[in-house]
C-alpha cells in the first residue's frame, strides 16, 4: 500500500466515520425518545447541534488554565478520530494494520476520557473538577475488566497460531466461536457480556454518566465548555461511540454476509460493509440506546464496586473457561 493510497483510505474512513457517527447519534436519540414515549428530535439533529454550537460564543472561564482548557477538545477529537484507523471496516483490514494493535486502540479509547477530565480540571469550576474526578474513578474501574476481555481473546487466538495475536486484523480474521468447545463458547459469552457492560461506561452514557450528570452537577466536566470547544467534544463523543461499537464487532462478531449468500466481487464487499454498519448500529442500540433508556444513573461508589468486583469476576470467569476449554478440547 503506497502512502498516497493510505492517505486516501484514512481520509475516507475519517470522513465517512464522522458522518456515520453523527447519523448514528441521530438514530440513537430518535429511538431513545420513541422508547420513552416522546416524538424525539429529527435524525439530522446532531448536525443541527454542531451548526448551533458554531454560532455560539466560545467562553473560556476566567478561572481556567486557558491553554489546557482549549487544547483538550482537540486531544479528544484526535484520539477518537485516529482510533478509527486501527479498526477493521467490514471485510477490509484496518487502514493502519501493521502500525498499531488492539493495545493501541485501548489507549486511544482512554485518551478522550483523560482529555475531558483534564479539561474539567483546567476549567477551575467546582462542578468541572468533581466531574473530572468522577471520570478518572470510572476510568480506573472499567479498564481492568476491559483489559481482561482483550487479553483473554488474544491469548486464545495466540494458541491458534494464526499470527500476531494482538493485531485486530488477526482477531477479526479468526472469530473464536467456532474454534472452541462448549466451555469456550460459555467463556466467550461471559467476555461479550463484560464488554457490553463496559461499552456505555467507556462512553460515559447512562447509567454511567456520572462525570456529566446534568441534573446533579450541571454537566460536570463540560459545564464550562461552550461554542466550538463543546462542538469538538461532541464530535469526539460521536466518533468514539462508533469506534467502541466497531471494536466489539471486530472482537466478537466479525462475520460477513456476502460469503454465506454466495455473493463475490465488489458487490459482496459492499454488502459486507453495509452489514458491518448494521452490526455497529446493533451494538450501539443494544449497549447504549436501550441501556440508557432502561436504567437510572448509578452512584460513583456503585460503579467502582460494580466494575472491580462482579464485572471483573465475570471477565475472569470467561478467561478461566477459555483456559479450561483449551485444556479439554486442545
Amino acid at each position: 500500500m503506497t502512502a498516497v493510497s493510505a492517505l486516501w483510505q484514512a481520509a475516507l474512513v475519517l470522513g465517512g466515520g464522522t458522518l456515520l457517527a453523527l447519523v448514528y447519534k441521530g438514530f440513537d436519540r430518535k429511538l431513545a425518545a420513541r422508547m420513552q414515549g416522546r416524538i424525539g428530535p429529527p435524525i439530522r439533529q446532531p448536525f443541527l447541534d454542531l451548526g448551533k454550537l458554531l454560532v455560539k460564543e466560545t467562553v473560556v472561564p476566567r478561572t481556567a488554565v486557558r491553554w489546557v482548557f482549549n487544547l483538550m477538545p482537540f486531544l479528544a477529537l484526535v484520539a477518537a478520530g485516529t482510533v478509527l484507523l486501527y479498526l477493521p471496516v467490514g471485510p477490509f483490514a484496518p487502514v493502519l494494520s501493521g502500525y498499531g494493535d488492539v493495545i493501541v486502540v485501548l489507549y486511544l479509547l482512554a485518551l478522550p476520557a483523560i482529555a475531558m477530565a483534564l479539561g474539567g480540571f483546567a476549567s477551575g469550576s467546582p462542578y468541572g473538577v468533581v466531574g473530572a474526578q468522577r471520570e478518572l474513578v470510572m476510568l480506573m474501574s472499567y479498564e481492568f475488566p476491559l483489559a481482561v476481555v482483550v487479553v483473554a481473546l488474544a491469548w486464545r487466538v495466540a494458541e491458534l497460531g494464526a499470527g500476531p495475536a494482538f493485531s485486530l486484523a488477526t482477531l477479526a480474521g479468526n472469530p473464536l466461536w467456532a474454534q472452541v468447545g462448549p466451555l469456550g463458547v460459555l467463556g466467550l459469552a461471559l467476555l461479550l457480556v463484560a464488554l457490553l457492560v463496559v461499552t456505555p461506561a467507556e462512553l460515559s452514557k447512562i447509567p454511567f454518566d456520572i462525570p456529566e450528570a446534568e441534573t446533579e452537577i450541571a454537566g460536570g466536566l463540560v459545564v464550562e465548555y461552550s461554542g466550538v470547544n463543546l462542538a469538538l467534544f461532541y464530535l469526539a463523543d460521536a466518533i468514539k461511540t462508533v469506534a467502541m461499537a466497531a471494536l466489539v464487532v471486530a472482537l466478537f462478531i466479525p462475520y460477513g454476509i456476502a460469503g454465506p449468500l454466495g455473493i463475490g466481487g465488489i458487490g459482496g464487499q459492499i454488502l459486507d460493509v453495509a452489514f458491518f454498519f448494521l452490526k455497529v448500529f446493533a451494538v450501539i442500540f443494544a449497549a447504549v440506546t436501550t441501556v440508557r433508556v432502561a436504567f437510572a444513573r448509578l452512584k460513583v461508589d456503585q460503579i467502582a464496586r460494580g466494575f472491580w468486583i462482579p464485572l471483573t469476576a465475570v471477565a475472569l470467569a470467561g478467561l478461566l473457561l477459555l483456559v479450561l476449554d483449551k485444556a479439554v478440547v486442545g
Binding site: L96, Y99, D101, S167
Partner: peptide, 13 residues
Amino acid sequence: QGYWSPLVWLALA
C-alpha cells in the same frame, strides 16, 4: 504478538 508505530500515529494525529 503486536506492533505500534508512534510516528505514523503522530503524523495522522
